[in-house]
Design a protein around this nucleic acid. Structure first.
Length: 424
DNA sequence: TCATGATTTGTCC
DNA sequence: CTAACGGGACAAATCATGA
């Protein structure tokens, strides 16, 4: 049983550097949507002590002083480079689980244990040569250990050069290593659980690995119990098949500016529902209900706060943009209150099932359904070919006063001819 | 009282 | 110039409800 976890280094920053090599060695960071928080940092930025998740407006001055280069996030670019990285990695194993935009697991069962280090190096070199993104590789018996091995590879522990294979460590070396790493670095141990463990004097990974299982189960949860098992080499989290359809779809966004009126809110909800319905159809699913929510800015404690949410049941499960928008706007009218400054809204599609598997009812209008399928297929095809949002429904509005801030975005180098820079 | 469904919580990246 | 703090997904835990 051997598993590899391959994780791109500072992924978003690395994507920006692929197309601007002069950023190499310079402090670079990438901001979240709306230019809100720091979500990716180069090593130089980490060395300056800037923290992950820190709001940009608090750092802007400091960043200028240090000559930090900040980008708005460019998901079109990151998605495209991610696809290339994942596609290359898929050739290294018959089984791959894409865990997130910048990391995946590979099943290395049956490979020669002595050659795994070299195999990991081959992955790194191939990706660097073909895409230009640096990655690290962690190899171990379970997912949790592979994540940890990757962490060690990134930190460069014990002369490790981008690949770390726990299979090469004996018991004593393993214990010593684990005793040197804080428990919060384990996959699945977040802030809250870290605090709880600390209160029980469980400080290092070695402490956690040797902790009493029953006690962990009763004081925390079955999930943490499994994590402890995994740290001991007992596999509890299996490799998941790719292409499994999602169980929920969320589209939500903070606004670039506060909005107050029902009209602007309706536009945003219609727009988000359109995006959600596209994802739904891409998955080949239909939704049974849609939830709508709006809220004010929770960070402005001195102004009146309001959170509204509701769930609207559809007559029958659907993937039709217009039907979904109709339901969403109905929900919005119920929860809308005038007199508040709204900062964010969103929709959530629930009760997802494979299209076609839904129970047909006596009153289904099959002719109307067939027309809807054609309409939606055409809409998706045009938008795919001509660019997202070329054809939209009137309800989504045109001007989008509420659109998010993206003041420092790089061009879509790989997906839009018109955004290729001039050759100097 | 139990089983089920709905909502909240915690985590990850 | 001012004001300015992400988004999406999942599973388990917890709460609410109704037979």
């Amino acid at each position: 049983m051997a598993l590899a976890l391959i994780d791109c280094n500072n992924f978003y920053v690395s994507c920006e550097r692929v197309f601007q090599p002069k950023l190499e060695g310079k402090p670079v960071l990438v901001l979240s949507n709306n230019d809100g928080c720091v979500v990716s940092r180069s090593n130089e930025v980490k060395a300056l002590g800037l923290r992950m998740g820190e709001p940009w407006f608090k750092l802007e001055k400091l960043a200028k002083q240090h000559g930090i280069i900040a980008f708005s996030s460019n998901y079109t670019l990151y998605d495209d480079l991610s696809t290339r990285v994942m596609s290359i990695l898929s050739t290294f194993s018959p089984r791959q689980e894409i865990y997130s935009i910048d990391e995946c697991f590979l099943d290395l069962d049956g490979f020669d244990p002595q050659s795994l280090m070299a195999y990991g190096q081959a992955m790194r070199q191939t990706i660097m040569r073909n895409v230009g993104i640096p990655v690290c590789v962690g190899i171990a018996d379970t997912k949790t250990l592979a994540k940890l091995a990757n962490h060690c590879a990134k930190k460069g522990f014990a002369g490790v050069d981008g690949v770390c294979d726990f299979g090469l460590l004996d018991e004593a070396q393993r214990s010593a290593l684990f005793a040197s790493i804080p428990v919060g670095d384990v996959w699945g141990v977040g802030r809250r659980i870290s605090e709880g463990l600390l209160a029980m004097r469980i400080k290092t990974i070695e402490d956690l690995r040797t902790a009493n299982l029953k006690r962990i189960r009763s004081q925390f949860s079955v999930v943490l119990e499994r994590t402890v098992q995994e740290l001991n080499g007992v596999s509890c989290f299996q490799l998941e098949k790719i292409g499994k359809p999602r169980q929920q779809i969320i589209v939500s966004r903070s606004f670039g500016t506060m909005i107050t009126g029902l009209n602007d809110l309706s536009e945003s909800i219609a727009y988000f529902t359109t995006r959600a319905a596209e994802k739904l159809r891409r998955d080949g699913s239909v939704a049974a209900s849609i939830s709508v929510y709006i809220h004010t800015n929770p960070f402005k404690e001195d102004v009146p706060q309001y959170n509204g949410a509701t769930i609207v049941q559809l007559n029958q499960p659907s993937d039709d943009t217009m039907e979904l928008i109709g339901a969403a706007l109905k929900g919005l009218k119920e929860i809308y209150r005038s007199g508040f400054h709204y900062k964010k809204s969103g929709v959530l599609l629930m009760g997802l099932q494979r299209k076609g598997s839904a129970q047909a009812t006596l009153f289904d209008d099959t002719d109307k359904q067939a027309k809807s399928v054609n309409m939606m297929r055409t809409l998706d095809a045009i938008n795919k070919k001509m660019g997202k949002g070329i054809v939209t429904l009137a309800a989504s509005g045109i001007k989008h006063r509420w659109a998010m801030r993206r003041e420092r975005q790089s061009p879509n180098y790989t997906t839009d001819w018109f955004e290729l820079p001039e050759v100097e």
